[in-house]
Design a protein around this nucleic acid. Structure first.
Length: 850
DNA sequence: GTTTAGGGTTGG
């Protein structure tokens, strides 16, 4: 392993007063090493080359994911640092890419790179400690499949750093080039190894930078500044494009700055207020009682992310620029100064979900399609992965005129905003390509019906589009109005893509919009619309028993099976949802399914608990926006807790613990995830809700636990090798919940010519109806099937007369058994078993066999 | 080694 130069780290960061990487105060997880990893990393560790990370490596026989068997570490140079993603007040995630520094001799041309994902405090500490180019050593990591391997073409596995064992050692970068003046080097020190660096240094002039309070009219200067206002390049009245900026620095002067240039790529790549620019060769002019800066021949502009801990990669199209340690330090100083000045907007852009009528805002989005409307207006169809709380304006254009798809699925359409860009922006819009990531500045959300040029709406359409939100990018450049293509690697685009990836699949969305499904059981009137269907019942048993009358049967000894031919006289309960019960196979208790009112109350009580909840160590906590419904209330965010293990296995949608959500929100979110477990805070810990509430939502299905037999606690489920799907059984087991089974229980009053008899339909109810109770609890089709069957066997309001009532005759098998009633008296009960409903296509006989 | 712009919203 390489050893990097000592002490650089100290000079670079140790003395930086604003950086909060005080060694004494820092947690021990990120270690700052003055010397290289070779001398600091514990000697007992085995270094695993990046190329050998994965399931086939010989250091483990486990597959998919492995906690390394013996102390192992992995080292590489930091080539990319993602943005610190805050998931909750005390939880974070940061992704970085490290590259092997010294490949084995027989390795392929390019050094392998791997994604490293850090969680929690480690991510935060690392974010403050690391700079691009640093060498890091990671240990105590787990390895998970990389969900982004197809996109980033990096290593098929990720290093995952979370928990107490995870460590990252941050080491300084290789020594910087020698001083820029080669004359200061003795001739005999200009050895060949340094030659390239030296020759580059001779070309790079030593720049001095003017403070913004020390500008003298007529001079040409270099300067740094934090952007406080900017306009994207726009066409000037002359020959060039013009960018205007206003910048500031520690002097608090605000200096206007103009950049002229024919080519877009030579303009500063400023994307948001707070960005930092470095200007070379700008002329100072006096205008309107203050100094301004204008580019001169041979100028250059670099732009940097203004966020503390942000990337040091300068944004420029220039292939030759000089950037040294001093520049990096200046940027860092401006960043920390600006952070204290609150110059950066708290929310640089507004997602569609937060767009408010009449408001101006900046939008980061992806272009899906565009179409010219007329010479002064172009339609841009964009999305950002969030759903606007307001109904969006629909704009119809000819499919032929559209670049990109001319239509999308209904689900996707609900996420697409139509933006009308006008006048001077039309030309730039013409250069945009579907797929581009955009930032649109000073976009306006306009409520109410909106007329689109050339698409005069009829009166009726106008009525329909009241309250719809339209987005306009008005003409002009006031307030920085404009459009900029963002590079895909920009942190904001990366963040947006994460949101987009979390959007449920389109199938899930179609379920989402059928949220009425669950209300069916409690929605009267029943069977009014159910078309009576001719059906009957027949036995599926193999008993060789002759058919008896009900009066014969009543005189028989219990404990036998009987065959009868009967009609259904009446049944209970008439409200089908009351027939659905929860049965515990352990304590054999049966209870009603809690109604939504009760369950909703439990959810709201659980989310009212103000006690802070510390999620378990294995959980990654954050917040998620609830998809809105029409008419949508403002979108709300609720707490989510994910299993880091599942995340590492690229199974993020398989299990979600949800806190603080209402029943309705839980139901809505459940449509997009395989398993949603509602949780609450209890004594500072994460706990399940009262077991009267479902402990699990799977799509439209809900699962309950037995209060008597469960010892519930929130635990991470264990799945063998990541192959076993997570279902209600796996989760019940993991959570200590005794799973209750949905059953159907009905009491039927049977009749024949001889007598009447009350019988239960329970154990064989599912096969009788050909419908599972679990489906019946969640699925309208299943419910309809049962309702139709009952309506057919026992028409509502129909006569019970054996002949004129017209009720179908059923051949049933009954078992008789003895039980005790509540008073302890013996009684005989009957149950329908081994009998199934038959639904003949057309022929049906009413013939009375008696 | 010229000019442009030099912030602050009409709205379709």
């Amino acid at each position: 392993m390489r050893s990097t130069a000592p002490c650089q780290f100290e000079t670079k960061r140790g003395k930086n007063k604003t950086k909060s990487c005080n060694r004494d105060a820092m947690p021990q997880r990120v270690m700052f090493e003055g010397a290289g990893p070779g001398s600091q990393v514990p000697a007992h560790m085995t270094r695993v080359p990046i190329s050998l990370i994965g399931p086939d490596a010989d250091y483990s026989d486990k597959t998919v994911k492995v906690r390394l068997q013996r102390p192992a570490m992995c080292t590489g140079k930091v080539v990319r640092i993602g943005r610190l993603v805050s998931l909750a007040s005390d939880n974070n995630l940061l992704k970085t890419v490290i590259q092997e520094e010294d490949s084995p001799p027989n390795a392929s041309a390019q050094n392998p790179s791997i994604n490293v994902v850090l969680f929690g405090g480690l991510a935060k500490d690392f974010n403050q400690a690391v700079n691009q180019g640093d060498v890091v050593v990671a240990s105590g990591f787990t390895v998970g499949r990389s969900p982004t391997v197809h996109k980033d073409k990096l290593h098929p596995f990720n290093l995952l750093l979370s928990g107490d064992e995870a460590r990252v050692y941050v080491c300084p970068p290789p020594p910087p080039p020698p001083p820029p003046d080669p004359r200061s080097l003795p001739a005999d020190k200009r050895c060949s190894a340094l030659h390239a660096e030296v020759s580059r240094a001779t070309k790079a002039p030593k720049y001095t930078y003017s403070g913004l309070d020390a500008l003298k009219a007529g001079s040409v200067v270099n300067a740094y500044g934090v952007v406080v206002f900017f306009k994207q390049p726009f066409k000037s009245r002359g020959t060039d494009l013009c960018s205007t900026l206003k910048i500031t620095d520690q002097s608090n002067q605000r200096i206007a700055c103009s950049v002229f240039g024919e080519k877009l790529e030579n303009h500063p790549k400023v994307f948001q207020v707070g960005d930092i620019v470095r200007l070379h060769r700008f002329k100072v002019q006096f205008f309107n009682s203050s100094m301004t800066l204008v580019n001169t021949f041979g100028f250059s502009v670099l732009a940097f992310d203004g966020a503390e801990g942000g990337s040091m990669e300068p944004r420029t199209s220039s292939r030759s620029f000089h950037l040294d340690q001093e520049d990096r330090r200046t940027v860092e100083e401006l960043r920390s100064w600006a952070a204290g000045q609150a110059l950066l907007p708290p929310t640089p852009t507004t997602p569609l979900s937060a767009a408010q009528p009449k408001a101006y805002f900046d939008l980061t989005c992806q272009l899906l399609a565009k179409a010219p409307i007329d010479s002064t207006c172009t339609l841009l169809r964009v999305w950002d992965g969030t759903r606007c709380a307001h109904t969006l304006l629909k704009v119809t254009v000819e499919p032929d005129a559209t670049e990109g798809p001319s239509s999308f699925s209904e689900a996707r359409e609900r996420l697409i905003a139509n933006i009308l860009v006008y006048d001077n922006h039309v030309e730039l819009a013409g250069q945009l390509k579907p797929g581009d990531f955009l930032r649109i500045y000073n976009l306006r959300a306009i409520p109410g019906s909106s007329k689109v040029p050339g698409h005069a709406s009829s009166h009726q359409q106008e009525e329909e589009e009241v309250d719809h939100l339209a987005f306009h990018l008005h003409g002009g450049t006031a307030y920085g109005r404009g459009i900029r293509v963002l590079p895909e690697n920009s942190p904001d685009v990366q963040e947006m893509k994460r949101v987009m990836e979390a959007v449920p699949d389109e199938d899930d969305f179609s379920e989402l919009n059928d949220s009425q499904l669950l209300e069916v059981w409690s929605t009267p009137p029943e069977s009014a619309e159910a078309e009576p269907m001719e059906c009957s019942a027949e036995r599926s048993c193999g008993h060789d028993t002759r058919t008896v009358t009900l009066s014969d049967l009543k005189r028989s000894d219990p404990g036998l099976v009987h065959h009868v031919r009967v009609q259904l006289r009446s049944y209970e309960p008439h409200r089908l949802h009351q027939a659905l019960k929860l049965y515990c196979s352990k304590c054999t208790s049966m209870e009603d399914v809690p109604n939504d009112e009760l369950v909703a109350r439990l959810f709201s009580e659980a989310s009212e608990d103000p006690a802070p909840c510390s999620p378990p160590a294995w959980a990654l906590s954050g917040r998620v926006a609830i998809p809105g419904e029409r008419p949508a209330p403002p979108t709300r965010a609720v707490g989510v807790h994910l299993s880091t293990r599942l995340l590492g296995e690229d199974r993020p949608k398989e299990l979600l613990f949800l806190s603080g959500s209402t029943l309705e929100e839980t139901r809505r979110l459940a449509a997009g995830y395989q398993n949603v477990v509602p949780v609450r805070s209890s004594g500072g810990h994460m706990a399940l809700l009262d077991l009267s509430a479902p402990f699990l939502f799977r799509g439209l299905k809900r699962y309950f636990g037995c209060k008597r037999c469960s010892e519930a606690a929130v635990r991470e489920p264990v799945c063998a090798e990541g192959l076993e799907p997570i279902d209600e059984k796996v989760l019940a087991e993991a959570l200590g919940v005794q799973l209750l089974q949905f059953v159907l229980l009905m009491k039927l009053e049977l009749q024949d010519a001889s007598d009447r008899l009350d019988v239960f339909l329970w154990r064989d109810a599912e096969s009788f109806f050909g419908v599972s109770a679990e489906d019946a609890a969640a699925n309208q089709e299943a419910q309809n099937s049962i309702r139709q069957t009952m309506a057919s066997l026992c028409p509502a309001g129909g006569s019970t007369d054996l002949v004129s009532g017209g009720r179908p005759w059923m051949d049933l098998c009954l078992t008789a058994y003895r039980t005790e009633d509540e008073a302890g008296r013996n009684q005989t009960c009957y149950q329908i078993c081994h009998s199934i409903i038959t639904k003949p296509a057309s022929t049906h006989s009413n013939a009375n066999p008696a």
